[in-house]
Design a binder for these strands. Structure first.
Lengths: 134, 134
DNA sequence: CGGTATCCTATTAGATACTG
DNA sequence: CAGTATCTAATAGGATACCG
């Protein structure tokens, strides 16, 4: 039955399986970049359209320049965000989502809407939980 | 006239708008619990079905007992996870998703599949990025 | 305007030991 | 088995100052 085994092996070599549940899988780093404290908000924020650094900073309430810059670099590196800096003064840089970034953003927006819409239930659950162990 | 205006105002008061982009909105804490380093993996892991503490720990490769315990408590508090501990020895505790937790899990699974399936592109993007500034 | 560099603190996470 | 408690290490994050 070696034929079958060989073709499976080749398939695995051509398309290695990625698994976020595995500690050393590269997909986990990307997942952490996407779902990190600021990653979600930056990606979802850009889903509304191209935005400048300072616009994005106002949109993502509470993010520091440092963290916004760092988050954008990581997302750009993974091919989720485009950075376009037309020459000129005053300097101006536009950030936007790549096609892949847009697909990720769509998922995140769904999640955001689900959570925002469920907040009454969630807050009730919290109160119940806290009351039970008070 | 006023009747309409009043009922709209009441509707807003009864259902305040939650916005993750706002720093002090409670939805942001929930978002951080859900999309935190271990939150995603715990919720998505439980999407396969009810699981015991140690099973879940094996499934979520790399999580420590402490972090798994902490993550589960937070998710239970927000009403996403159920904890059932039937009396007996040896002790046994089953964790499962609530209906809301299942809906969140479905979104996360979509995101995971999207990212895992895009890893070849993502890794190519990373190499390009790194090469360009080397 | 759009960042980077530095320094310092707070939070998170891991290792280890222990318990019902 | 399913945790908790404690201590330490690593990392994320914020404040400030400065640059092209």
């Amino acid at each position: 039955m070696t034929t079958r085994a060989v073709s499976e092996t080749q398939a695995e070599e051509n398309q290695p399986e990625f698994d976020v549940f595995a500690r050393r899988c590269p997909s986990r780093q990307t997942m952490e970049a996407v779902t990190g404290r600021w990653g979600v908000l930056v990606i979802a924020g850009l889903h509304a359209g191209s935005m400048r650094f300072s616009e994005l900073r106002r949109r993502v309430d509470g993010v520091s320049e440092k963290m916004l810059s760092q988050t954008l670099h990581t997302l750009e590196r993974d091919g989720l965000v485009n950075r376009v800096a037309p020459a000129g003064f005053p300097s101006r840089v536009d950030y936007s989502l790549t096609p892949l970034g847009s697909r990720v953003a769509a998922e995140l927006v769904d999640l955001i809407e689900l959570l925002e819409g469920s907040m009454p239930d969630i807050m009730a659950a919290r109160e119940r939980y806290d009351r039970e162990r008070a």
